[in-house]
Design a protein around this nucleic acid. Structure first.
Lengths: 193, 193
DNA sequence: AAAAATAGTTGAACAAGTTCAACTCGATCA
DNA sequence: TGATCGAGTTGAACTTGTTCAACTATTTTT
């Protein structure tokens, strides 16, 4: 069933009844996105939140010099959204692109609001999800400030081996905050040893 | 009244009754912390969340080489906690130290749990607060990856001038992710122009 | 008021990471 | 089949930021 993964995600480590989980899911529609297709482009309003059930996405912004900066990758079982644009009803700074043919469960802005109103557990669920997300972002900041590029590369490849397989070096470099040329040199040094 | 600032914080841009706001506050106790005192030390369990009503704090971790890495500063009207330790009941990686004589409103782990159970608006309030926090962390990651040290310094000093006044250069450098020597050189170049 | 600790400054040598340009290698497409 | 396009590789010169050490304020403690 298309909702299996989402049900598992929301019930994991939580006291949630089957009825609640099913009601939760009923607010989501499934959608297919082809490789390279954009789910969101910079400047558009992000009017959805999504849960990835298949495939992988890249969330990135473009800086003044035109360099891509990858905020995160979202594979199966990850949530996908531009919180800022969604919450504050403003044009997005982010691009969301499918790295391969993918499937998501998507909820509109209106239904998200209904979900919160009709299902009290949704508030707690997303509150806890956001807390976890903050922990992850804090750790990322610390890693970026205290580790060398080589160390960040090692961290990423050992912690997200499945995602690494789906990426080009350029995409990984834009996540690590280095140029793809330098990533290539890091990998070369690796092989020699 | 000691709760004035907290009441303003939780009612701002929200539909919250006075009764709710007062009940919310009743879970918090005020506490005074002297300059340089630690509210939390690495290795301890963070069993509180706090709201700063006066003064300023620094939240930082120590990496393997012994370098300090400042996650954020919390002045008046900011929230203060180690989410990871508090949520997952594990020893903290963070240190929280007062930069000057300060006052906070503090809530224990047990009361936080009671607050969520007894006051439904608390879930929504913290859910939205955490969403905003994620946006801020995402922007910080992008800045750290796409701006030079000089540009990050300019960003920080123009966006947080009141906090800058309370910091030593070493503390600011540990937030910007550079050495204090290099910060000194950045400031010198600034003056010449 | 003196002593001791801590914070900021500066320079020289060094390391980490970027830039640009040239090249190679596959994949895809006409 | 060739042409083309994007991805990865490599080197040389360059820029950004670090390290270490010595020095100078400035606070804090006694």
């Amino acid at each position: 069933m298309i909702y299996d993964l989402l049900i598992e995600n929301i019930t994991k480590n939580r006291e949630v009844s089957i009825a609640e989980a099913e009601k939760f899911c009923s607010f989501f529609n499934d959608k297919t996105i082809s490789k390279k297709e954009f789910l969101l482009k910079q400047g558009e309003f992000c009017k959805f939140e999504a849960f990835v059930t298949e495939g992988c996405f890249r969330v990135f912004s473009l800086d003044k010099k035109g360099n891509e900066n990858t905020l995160y990758f979202a594979a199966k079982d990850w949530w996908l959204m531009d919180i800022d644009s969604f919450m504050n009803h403003k044009p997005s700074d982010l691009n969301i692109q499918a790295l391969e043919d993918s499937k998501i469960l998507i909820i509109s802005q209106e239904d998200k609001s209904n979900l919160y109103n009709e299902l009290p557990m949704a508030e707690k669920f997303f509150r806890i999800m956001f807390q976890k997300s903050i922990v992850a972002w804090q750790r990322r900041v610390v890693r970026n400030n205290s580790l060398t590029a080589k160390e960040r590369y090692n961290y990423f490849t050992t912690h997200y081996p499945e995602i690494v397989l789906k990426l080009t070096d350029r995409q990984m470099a834009s996540y690590l905050g280095i140029t793809h040329e330098f990533l290539s040199k890091i990998k070369k040094r690796d092989k020699k040893q």
